[in-house]
Design a protein around this nucleic acid. Structure first.
Length: 935
RNA sequence: GCCCGGAUGGUGGAAUUGGUAGACACGUCAGACUUAAAAUCUGAUGGCCGUAAGGCCGUGCGGGUUCAAUUCCCGCUCCGGGUACCA
């Protein structure tokens, strides 16, 4: 029989679909298993070969678990809000919902071809109002909640209001910004004096106006409005990601970009900092991802230290955070971020121009550019602060390398102990106090953690660990500082000035935001998907009557970010059609945490942190019974594309072949990989590819061919290196594609995509098919059973440790070994092998299951067990090595013990030959493994 | 810059707990079949020296620990990912 994969795959996909084989329901009699995939964004380029990689892996596990008797939830859906659809809408005027729908159906069809065991009846998409009404509902809950530090969880806002009514804010500790009262507009609080420091009584509270109460509550809500710094591009009328800013200009269009403070919705994720770190302990994630999340939260213990301004700046206090209070005596200057509120106060008149210039320049750099900056820059402000312990006057600077958003936006510089501070001091010729014994601070920075302090008064003679507590006590007793825990984590900006995202269920009445409950605020129609002339978000184009729901004086016109919908989708899959709840409690209790999440490591600090945050929040509200979403996670590597390039001679439409490009001034352009075979360009195809190349001329190789350059890089539409799975499915079948993607290498490693090896895998399936079809209804032979059971053991243990690639090799070896047996193979002997194949090549396995006389469908067959009796090896081949180098092999009965092995080896004439008279110093025998003779 | 990964033949990779480096595939070469080609099958295939037996070298680079290191430790190089509004 020929391996007719086309009809086999079509047939079995129809059978599964008719029998609804992959639809699941809660079943109390079976253990559950929840396998989840990364939520795909349906881009216009369609699914590329990198997408299915993770999906195939999770499908293999899902099918394996099903064979093992688990009730498996394996859903798929779409993260369908996003920028590309919006940009396409801006360019063409087409509503993003239309583009999105087209893209989704393409994705869905592509996935269906591959034969995934997804329960499609559970499909969700974030841009569907029946989905995003619940995203809005969760937002509403966050808006109506505060974080009680004492009980360590979120609480309904009403409990906070009740507390304020009773005792003001005296008996309660709510998560908030440090110095939250400084965010308030004092005009709203006429009876609070200048020295208000955040304490108010019940009477104070009751006397506040509604606006004032709103302003206070806003400081404690988990979803709240606040000013935050963004990359504002006036020309485009929009905020840009750091990604979209290059050298202070927008990537798109090259317009100037500046840092600007804007009123934005924020998420108080910082309230969960400690829980986000502690929760990692129980997760089965790679250490590197856990480490990255810990670093992202960035909990550090240290001290806050106050430096009083002197001279013109007296009355001002610069607060800094330091993890090294022990080095306090080494402080010789203070650096403020260019955006720091006190910059003006410390700037002397003669420095004003220079400072303003510097602040302006800095405002044009993105945060990342500033952190990546290698050259040292800054300005001495002219003002001074007083060293809290020595009383010395020390200068104040501003510099790029201090970020406004981290800590207090100011640092105390210890040039002898910090690399950046040291370089800065050298550059500006600032004094470098030598505080480490035996170290020349003028020559280099000290990085010795165990260095002994000197010139530090009461800290002299101590090392870091002993000095820190003493320094902290000193600070606290003199009142110029205190112990403090600082976090790198910042609250997350939750507003986007975009059209294609979830609208907020928020309207404003007298400028006070009010939650719209019990109604879904759907997106209004707009005439264009661009910001308004005044720089308002696109939704501001909607007139009152355009809004399906309009309440209050005006609607919120920002939309939610991409991560809103993807922070809880795994919950919706459990109960996707529920119209009264985001997910019924009995469903989430049944399915519980995701048992296996397969996703890319590129989500480490975004999606994975936000999902954990929302899960913990829903847990606090007792809406679900677990507070971590993903129990086990595998991070798939990226499949990279192989890009091809042509070289255009600058200013001409002549293209020079790769070999001769050095002789010209050329510009390298990406060329569609479908126009290139073995690095040779299809010249005719290239000319008709794009109008601008129609009259292209070529400087070719002597044989008239044009060689392209190549590079391995990320697969993306803009690089014209996208490979879709479609043509491979067409040419080799889904089963081959599935096996090949797994065979390519370890799932977690990134690797370039290359179809060269695919024929080998296709060949394997053909040989497998031929082997089974050629088997007979007879008894299994002993060697046959041995091969099969060895394979069962290998495949099972590889699957358990998620080594997907070696499973394919193991099956290949089994087929090769069985073919080498020459004797007749039996149905009953091969039957377990067909089940082993089924997670990888389910269509072919179904077909072969019939051949070997299996009952029902192979997908429902029980996973075979390796019988120990078939696995017994009676011989062991010992490599015998001399000083670590293997010289010969010796086959011995497996029962030979250590002493016997040693004496047999020593008696072997080859041993004597190797030794050549040398004396044996030591003999190492590892039973069943190796013999090593040291001479 | 900072944080996190990775590097093994011509190529993708294997070696699970420190124990035979290169399994399994691709590619290449040779052979069989064929008038020929394709397909298929068989064999060889890390490098160097050697007719062979065999020897030396070899897991990004430089050191170290060990009877034994792709595996553990120290110091580098290069590549990839993330870096808070790409998803």
């Amino acid at each position: 029989m020929e391996y007719d994969f086309r009809s086999i795959e079509k047939h079995w996909q129809e059978v599964w679909s008719q029998k609804k084989s992959y639809q699941v329901k809660e079943a109390k009699d079976k253990p559950k298993f929840y396998a989840l995939d990364m939520f795909p964004y349906p881009s216009g380029a369609g699914l590329h070969v990198g997408h299915p990689l993770g999906y195939i892996a999770s499908d293999v596990i899902s099918r394996y678990k099903r064979h093992c008797g688990f009730n498996v939830l394996h859903p798929m859906g779409f993260d369908s809000f996003g920028l590309p659809a919006e940009q396409y809408a801006i360019a063409t005027g087409q509503h993003p919902a239309i583009t999105t729908e087209t893209n989704i159906s393409r994705y869905r069809n592509q996935m269906k071809q591959i034969g995934f065991s997804f329960d499609w009846s559970r499909e969700v998409m974030t841009s569907d109002p029946t989905y995003y009404r619940w995203t809005q509902w969760i937002f509403g809950k966050l808006f109506e909640s505060w974080y009680d530090v004492e009980s360590g969880g979120a609480q309904p806002l009403q409990t906070l209001i009740d507390a304020f009514e009773k005792n003001g804010n005296y008996a309660i500790e709510a998560a908030c910004d440090e110095g939250w009262w400084k965010n308030l507009d004092l005009e709203l609080f006429p009876h609070f004096g200048k020295h208000f420091e955040g304490d108010f009584t019940a009477t104070d509270w009751k006397s506040m106006s509604p606006k004032a109460k709103n302003a206070v509550l806003m400081q404690f809500r988990l979803a709240y409005l606040a000013d935050s710094e963004v990359n504002w591009c006036p020309e485009l009328g929009t905020v840009l990601a750091n990604d979209e800013v290059k050298d202070g200009l927008s990537e798109r269009g090259g317009h100037p970009v500046e840092r600007k403070r804007m009123r934005q919705w924020m998420m108080r994720i910082t309230a969960y900092s400690d829980r986000l770190v502690d929760g990692l302990d129980d997760l089965n994630w790679t250490e590197s991802i856990k480490e990255a999340q810990k670093n992202w939260v960035g909990r550090s213990e240290g001290a806050s230290v106050s430096f009083q301004g002197s001279g013109q700046a007296s009355g001002c206090t610069v607060d800094v955070f330091t993890t090294r209070p022990d080095t306090l005596y080494g402080v010789s200057f203070v650096v403020l971020a260019p955006e720091h509120k006190l910059v003006n106060a410390f700037t002397s008149d003669e420095k004003l121009g220079e400072v303003n210039q510097y602040v302006l320049t800095a405002s044009k750099k993105s945060e990342r550019e500033r952190q990546g900056e290698k050259s040292i820059s800054g300005v001495e402000l002219g003002g001074h602060v007083v060293h809290p312990l020595t009383g010395n006057n020390i200068p104040v600077y501003i510099s790029d390398y201090v970020l406004a958003g981290y800590g207090t936006g100011a640092i105390m510089a210890v040039p002898s102990g910090d690399e950046r501070d040291w370089k800065f001091a050298k550059y500006f010729k600032i004094d470098i106090p030598s505080i480490f014994q035996g170290h020349d601070s003028d020559a280099a920075v000290s990085s010795d953690e165990k260095a002994v302090l000197q010139n530090s008064e009461e800290l002299n003679g101590l090392r870091k660990l002993e000095a820190i507590p003493k320094a902290l006590n000193l600070l606290e007793s003199t009142g110029c500082g205190e112990r403090k825990i600082n976090y790198r984590l910042r609250d997350a900006v939750f507003s986007r000035q975009r059209y294609w995202g979830e609208p907020f269920p928020i309207c404003y009445e007298n400028d006070i935001p009010r939650l719209i409950e019990n109604e879904t605020v759907t997106l209004p129609a707009v005439d264009e998907y661009l910001p308004t002339a005044g720089g308002e978000p696109p939704l501001a184009r909607a007139r009152r009557e355009d809004w399906p729901v309009f309440q209050g004086d005006r609607m919120e016109t920002n939309t939610m970010p991409g991560w809103a919908g993807s922070s809880w989708y795994f919950l919706r899959y459990m109960d996707p059609h529920n119209e009264t709840e985001f997910c019924a409690r009995e469903k989430s209790d049944y399915w519980g945490q995701v048992d296996l999440y397969v996703g890319g490591a590129e989500h480490t600090t975004g999606h994975l942190l936000y999902s954990r945050f929302w899960t913990k929040f829903l847990f606090d509200l007792d809406k679900i019974s677990f507070d971590e979403p993903f129990k086990t996670m595998i991070n798939q590597g990226m499949i990279l594309g192989r890009s091809s390039f042509v070289y255009r001679v600058q200013g001409t439409s002549t293209f020079v072949t790769y070999e001769q490009r050095e002789a010209h001034k050329t510009q390298r352009l990406h060329v569609d990989v479908s126009l290139v075979e073995n690095d040779k360009l299809n010249i005719a195809g290239f000319k008709s590819w794009r109008a601008e190349f129609e009259h292209a001329e070529f400087i070719t190789c002597p044989d008239g061919t044009y060689t392209c350059g190549h590079e391995v890089e990320k697969m993306s539409k803009s690089k014209y290196n996208v490979q879709t799975p479609d043509e491979l499915v067409e040419k080799y079948g889904a089963d081959t594609l599935r096996c090949y993607e797994m065979f390519l290498g370890p799932l977690t490693q990134s690797k370039p995509w290359d179809t060269q090896g695919i024929s080998g895998v296709h060949n394997f399936l053909r040989k497998f098919s031929k082997l089974v079809v050629g088997s007979e209804n007879c008894e299994a032979s002993k060697p046959e059973l041995k091969i099969v059971h060895k394979t069962i053991e290998k495949v099972t243990s590889d699957l358990e440790r998620h080594a997907f690639n070696t499973v394919v090799s193991a099956l290949m070896i089994a087929v090769n070994d069985l073919n080498n047996l020459k004797s007749v193979k039996s149905h009953v002997g091969l039957r377990p092998l067909v089940t082993l194949l089924s997670p990888y090549a389910p269509h072919l396995a179904e077909e072969l299951w019939k051949v070997v006389g299996g009952m029902g469908l192979v997908i429902d067959s029980a996973w075979p067990k390796a019988e120990k009796s078939h696995l017994v090896e009676d011989e062991v081949s010992y490599p015998v090595s001399f000083n670590g180098k293997v010289r010969f092999k010796l086959t011995l009965p497996a029962s030979t013990n250590k002493v016997e092995v040693e004496s047999i080896v020593l008696a072997d004439e080859r041993t004597l030959q190797q030794l050549n008279g040398k004396e044996i110093k030591k003999v190492i025998v590892v039973p069943g493994r190796i013999v090593n003779i040291v001479s």
